[in-house]
Every structure is written in structure tokens, then in C-alpha cells.
Design a protein around this nucleic acid. Structure first.
Length: 496
RNA sequence: GCCCCUGUCGUCUAGCUUGGUCUAGGACAUCGCCCUUUCAAGGCGGCAACACGGGUUCAAAUCCCGUCGGGGGCGCCA
């Protein structure tokens, strides 16, 4: 079998979004697992909408996701250039050939005329198809008119009867009636190639073996096959992927949540998590194990097993997968990933000492399991830094005012004031004494202490909380961390 | 409107090619229980689907036909 060559061919008219990214990812996965070549080609023939900022954003996002290309703009390759705007001469030479052979013809119809015909066809309940009116104009006459400055597009002359069928790797045989396909535009009157034409020439010249793209291209495929035929070229294997939808079953868009790839990055979704989730959208691993690394996915992926029906993007599952991937990180990695969010929230200083990092590693290790993205971490850290008995909820405050609670807290305050240092071991022995002296135990003993130390009725285990607060109190933070003894005396003041 | 694609738990899916092993499996979400001084995490368990109607067959999620639903396309956009 020939070496697999696939391509991702975005037009630089917007950011890389989930749908495109998944198409790119499936192409990449297929290329890597078959030890083939993954090509990036920029389809920038729509000069009005294309912009180079988008191209660099696209490339940046692909890199972040870990989709590296073997041939493409900037890095080049044997089949360049990889930007369509640089290939205009190539298309032009093919056009001349088609025109001479009579396989294509100039069309002088105005946009208004065409629009009118289209509307009429629809109102008659028919598929709008170009009438073929300009087919009769001879090449000599057409050239004369073009030289005289008349605007003309170039159309492919297609057969009127019969059908076009092709095999789609995930959908099987697809059949299209030629009566419903008009003569497609090859070259627009501004002399730039139309999408269907440029794609065929590029895919063929770049020796693409498999065209893996979105389902929205299914109906372009017969037109493209017609172009391959006119050019005496062999079409590649086509693979049409179903589309990605939002919760309400409409095409995924901003109102469903994040859709641009860099938004996920900003939220603290690991690229390995998005990669993993995207691969699972429309495909399932044979053994059912869903949390997978890039390498495992390359190994297990099977293009033929891709689902034919549209899939809804599920943020919950993405988040769950992200959690699983975060767990695999080392403490240091977690801390480094968490830091920017915490610095941004003014919880951590600009300059971090070794002691800060050591503390942060422990803090993140304890708190990360309560969130599924790094962007949610600051609100967990706030619970550590913020201690204000006066802002306690009434319900929580009441829990402090029971008989047992009051006795426990006062006794604890008295005992802690006699210590010059505090840690969890000391906490354990104090509570042991308090239990003996007050007779309060279990929840009656621990819960008041939790509330007194945190001003909240839920949170970290105290064996994690106490060391964090005690060690943190010795470090400098934008907003200082109070130690246990400070906290208890504030609560006492508050209760008076 | 016309053409094309598609239809298994709320969601992603396994099973469908080669009917029986499917009282339809897994995962997310949800609910409950356990663990636990709280919350979270974790462990265990529950709820929950073959779109509908006809065939074919001893037997259909699996094959055939129809209906309905969802999506896409119908550009000198890509």
C-alpha cells in the first residue's frame, strides 16, 4: 500500500474551533498510526475574509494540541507551496488545458441572473442547477470577449445524465444524480480558483491518499470527482466525519460555551485532555478504557470505526477527563500550571521563593482534586486565605454556639495560647485532652474546631488544612495567611 | 422546497458486516449507600436506550420497506 498522506486544510478566516480541531486530530491520528505524512495547507483564496493573524493563531493552536505537521507553510516540503494564494499559476495552467480541450468553458452570466434562476428553481420545487447557457459560446468568441474586458468565470462542462458514485470509508457507497449537479465554477471572474477546483488540484499534486473532512463536504464530493475525471486524475479515498453539535443539537457555537481551542487552554484544560476527549467524540476504543494518552490513541485509533452520526460536545465529560489527566501530573507540574491562575488572582506573589513553591506544591496537591480545571483553583485558595468570622453564614454561626462547641473552643483557645508553635501533631494531642476534659467527642468535638479555624462548615481535612495554614503564615503573600492561634482569637472576639 | 447523510440510556458509545451468546455492555451525568469529624475525592450499587409502523424468519437492535425525527448541502465561501 502506498504511504498514507493526509492533510488538514483550514482557511484562515477565524480561530481554530472544536469542529475543525477534531477533523485535524483524526487526520493526524490516522497519519501517525500508519506512519504516513500529515500536511498543513492554507486555503486562503477568499481574499476578502482571509487574514494572516488567523493563520498564525491556527498554527499556534494546532501546536498546543500537539498536532505537528510534516509539510506545510514555513517548513515547506516537496509539494509546496502550501498556501493556495501562492499556487495561482499552477491552477491557471490547468485551466488553459481544460479550456482548450473543451472540458471547461467561459461563463458570462451575471450574479443577478444566476440568483434569479436559483430562486425560480426553488419556487418550482426543484434543485437549483446552472442552465448551461454559456456552453454554446465558442472558445474563440469567449476569448475575444474576455480580451475586450468582459468579466467571465470558468465552468466545468459536466455530463447531463448518469450518476456519480463513490465509496466513503465510513459511509459506504454514496450515489448522486448528475441531473442535480450543474456545471461547477472552476475559476471565479476575479481569476481566483474556486474551492472545489483548487482542492482537487492541490490534493492530487500533493499526492493526498485520504481526504478526511467534515460531513458538510459530502455534496461537494461529486463535483470534485467530476473535476478529477476532467483532469484525468485519480481521486483519493474520501472519509466524511460527522459534525460536532451543541447541547441543543444545533451546530456548536459560542453560546454553548468555549469552542475556540485557545479558550480551553486559558481555562486550564490540559492539551492532553482535550486531545483525549476529541478523539472520543465519534470514536470508541476497543477495550473501553477511555482515559488515554496521545501515544495510546495513536496506537488504538481506527478510522473505519468512526461513528456516522453527529455527536454532542459534552463539557462534563471533558472536565472529567481533564481531572484524570491532572492526576497523572507530578506535584511540581501541578504547581507550575496552577501558579499563573493564582498570581492572576493576587493570591500568590510575583516573586516566588523556594519555600513558596514547596508550600504551593502541597496546597495544590490538596486542593486540585476539588476542581476539574486550573481556572477553578483560585476560588479554592480563597477559602484558605480568607478568614472572616463576621461574614459567617447564620447556620454556620449557630453551630459554634452550642454548649459543647463553646466549651471546646474556649478550652482550645486557652491551650493553644500556651504553645509557642503549632502543628497537626499538637492539634491531635490538644483535641485528645479536650475530649477528656469536656466529654465532647466525634462531630461535637471536631466540627466546632473546624468552624472556628475556617469560618466555614466544610473544607479540607484538618490534617491537611492545619499544616498549610501554619506553614503559610510564615511566608509572605499579597494577602497574609493567618495561623491557627490568630484565627481562634478572632473567633473569640467575634463571639463576645 | 429539492438533494444527501443520520437515528441504541439525558450525553459519548459497544453490539449491527456474518440474525440466536443482548433479561442490550461500558463511560460521563444523575440518584442512593459505604468510607469519613465536614465538604470534596474514592469505593459500591440503582435509575435509564434499540425512534415508530409494517414485513422476512422458528428467532431481529441486527435483514427489507415505509413513516417520523435530527443534521448537512443547494454560492463566482471554504
Amino acid at each position: 500500500m502506498d504511504k498514507v498522506r493526509v492533510r488538514f486544510a483550514p482557511s484562515p478566516t477565524g480561530f481554530l474551533h472544536v469542529g475543525n480541531a477534531r477533523t485535524a486530530l483524526f487526520n493526524w491520528l490516522f497519519a501517525r498510526q500508519s506512519e504516513g505524512v500529515f500536511i498543513l495547507r492554507i486555503e486562503d483564496t477568499d481574499i476578502k475574509r482571509s487574514a494572516s493573524e488567523y493563520e498564525s493563531r491556527l498554527k499556534k493552536d494546532l501546536c498546543w494540541l500537539g498536532l505537528d505537521w510534516d509539510e506545510g507553510p514555513d517548513i515547506g516540503g516537496r509539494f509546496g507551496p502550501y498556501r493556495q494564494s501562492l499556487r495561482i499559476d499552477i491552477y491557471r495552467s490547468y485551466t488553459q488545458k481544460l479550456l482548450e480541450e473543451g472540458k471547461a468553458y467561459y461563463c458570462f452570466c451575471s450574479l443577478q441572473e444566476l440568483e434569479k434562476e436559483r430562486k425560480r428553481a426553488i419556487s418550482l420545487g426543484k434543485m437549483p442547477v446552472y442552465s448551461g447557457r454559456c456552453q454554446a459560446i465558442s472558445l474563440e468568441e469567449a476569448r475575444r470577449r474576455v480580451d475586450a474586458g468582459e468579466q467571465a468565470a470558468v465552468r466545468l462542462r459536466t455530463p447531463e445524465k448518469g450518476d456519480i458514485r463513490y465509496n466513503d470509508l465510513v459511509r459506504g457507497t454514496l450515489n448522486f444524480d448528475l441531473k442535480l449537479i450543474g456545471d461547477p465554477i472552476l475559476v471565479r471572474s476575479n481569476e481566483l480558483p474556486a474551492y472545489n477546483y483548487a482542492v482537487v488540484i492541490d490534493d492530487s499534486l500533493m499526492e493526498i491518499t485520504h481526504v478526511i473532512r467534515g460531513e458538510d463536504h459530502i455534496s461537494n464530493t461529486p463535483r470534485q470527482i467530476l473535476i478529477y475525471k476532467a483532469l484525468s486524475l485519480t481521486p483519493p479515498q474520501f472519509v466524511h466525519l460527522s459534525l460536532v453539535m451543541g447541547k441543543d443539537n444545533t451546530r456548536l457555537s459560542k453560546r454553548h460555551g468555549a469552542t475556540a481551542i485557545d479558550q480551553f487552554e486559558k481555562q486550564g484544560i490540559l492539551s492532553s485532555s482535550l486531545f483525549n476527549y476529541l478523539a472520543l467524540l465519534g470514536w470508541a476504543p476497543p477495550e473501553g478504557e477511555e482515559v488515554l494518552t496521545k501515544n495510546e490513541l495513536v496506537e488504538l485509533f481506527n478510522l473505519k470505526k468512526v461513528s456516522r452520526s453527529a455527536a454532542i460536545f459534552d463539557y462534563d465529560k471533558l472536565h472529567w477527563i481533564n481531572r484524570q489527566h491532572i492526576k497523572e501530573l507530578s506535584s511540581r507540574q501541578k504547581a507550575e500550571l496552577a501558579y499563573p491562575y493564582l498570581k492572576e488572582s493576587k493570591l500568590l506573589p510575583e516573586k516566588m521563593t523556594d519555600a513558596h513553591w514547596e508550600w504551593l506544591e502541597k496546597a495544590v496537591e490538596s486542593l486540585i482534586e476539588r476542581v476539574d480545571r486550573f481556572s477553578d483553583l483560585p476560588e479554592q485558595f480563597v477559602k484558605l486565605f480568607e478568614f472572616s468570622p463576621s461574614r459567617m453564614e447564620d447556620k454556620t454561626k449557630e453551630e459554634l454556639e452550642t454548649d459543647c462547641a463553646l466549651r471546646v473552643i474556649y478550652l482550645f483557645a486557652e491551650k493553644i495560647s500556651r504553645l509557642d508553635s503549632f502543628d497537626y501533631d499538637k492539634f491531635a494531642s490538644l483535641t485528645h485532652e479536650i475530649k477528656r476534659e469536656t466529654g465532647c467527642k466525634g462531630k461535637d468535638l471536631y466540627h466546632p474546631l473546624r468552624v472556628a479555624l475556617t469560618a466555614r462548615d466544610s473544607g479540607l481535612d484538618l490534617d491537611k488544612f492545619i499544616p498549610l495554614v501554619e506553614k503559610g503564615a510564615k511566608l509572605s503573600f499579597p494577602k497574609p495567611l493567618k495561623n491557627c492561634s490568630q484565627r481562634i482569637s478572632e473567633v473569640l472576639n467575634f463571639l463576645k
